[in-house]
Nucleic acid binder design. Structure first.
Lengths: 144, 144
DNA sequence: TTAACATGTAATTCAAGTGGTTACAAGCTA
DNA sequence: TAGCTTGTAACCACTTGAATTACATGTTAA
């Protein structure tokens, strides 16, 4: 299966907070832009808050960015909204047969390989910031 | 969620075919090493067959490698057992609001970014072969 | 020509994750 | 206090994964 759309929605939210920073970004307003419902937005916004990426408080309308645009990488967002912890991108079959040479050593052999691949993915996400995304959005909007 | 364990099981199967190449690798035998059931092994073996990685025929006991060990990369296995096609590692939220600057451009903006990340992952898998894995398994087995 | 065994595959079950939705408690402000 | 907000919990429908069962099909050897 794919990586949850929470990731792309999280990026959407952060970009919107910047582009609409003059306005009040309630969960209802954000939900209309994303085209989903406010409860889901509040859930994801809560995750972004836990990661220190946004400011949002009960009763007070609107979320705001908690860090500089250029200080938020997609990797930050990825970690913020991904419930699964690190080193779990690849599912490894459990309990192979220890009586078999392959079964006995397969896990220890492929885990570091999977780690390298996962780190390559994360590195690629780590070099892109929300600022880059916002620039991309504004750039595309101009040329259309 | 994670990438299916079919991937690690596929690697397991191919490694076993090499290490036990003197024996007859029936789905039942392989299932015992992986610690699952023969039907699942046959399903995955079928995928590996469709990708041209193994030889296996109805009625004839045992699967064999269809290519040189060093000619099979983990990326080949990844593609063989992954039902989802390329460019689908990251789920992108559908139908954002076209009346919003962000909604109108977010998809086109992040898709190429996701592609770069996905390609980084695939590149990391592409440089490791089953031969490397087999060597790793035998190496680890020696030192324990 | 069967009997025994292998693969191929469909169908079923169970569990887990995802996203959508409703509902409501708790907090804030005019 | 009224009316808004956020924070959550509780469902639901849907999809996928993996395990399992069952059986049709193919092969081989007695």
């Amino acid at each position: 299966m794919s990586i949850s759309t929470r990731f792309s929605v999280g990026i959407h939210i952060l970009s919107l907070l910047e582009i609409n920073k003059e306005g009040v970004n309630t969960s209802d307003f954000i939900a209309k832009s994303v085209n989903t419902n406010p409860a889901l937005i509040r859930k994801i916004t809560g995750m972004l808050k836990n990661a220190g990426l946004v400011n949002v408080r009960p009763g007070i309308a609107g979320a705001t960015l908690a860090k500089e645009l250029s200080d938020i990488t997609l990797l930050d967002v990825y970690h913020a909204v991904n419930i699964v912890s690190d080193k779990e991108l690849f599912g490894i079959h459990e309990n192979p047969n220890p009586a078999c040479t392959v079964g006995r050593n397969i896990q220890d052999t492929i885990e570091p390989i999977f780690s390298v691949a996962e780190l390559a993915l994360e590195k690629a996400l780590g070099v892109v910031t929300i600022e880059d995304v916002v620039k991309g959005i504004l750039e595309k909007d101009k040329t259309e």
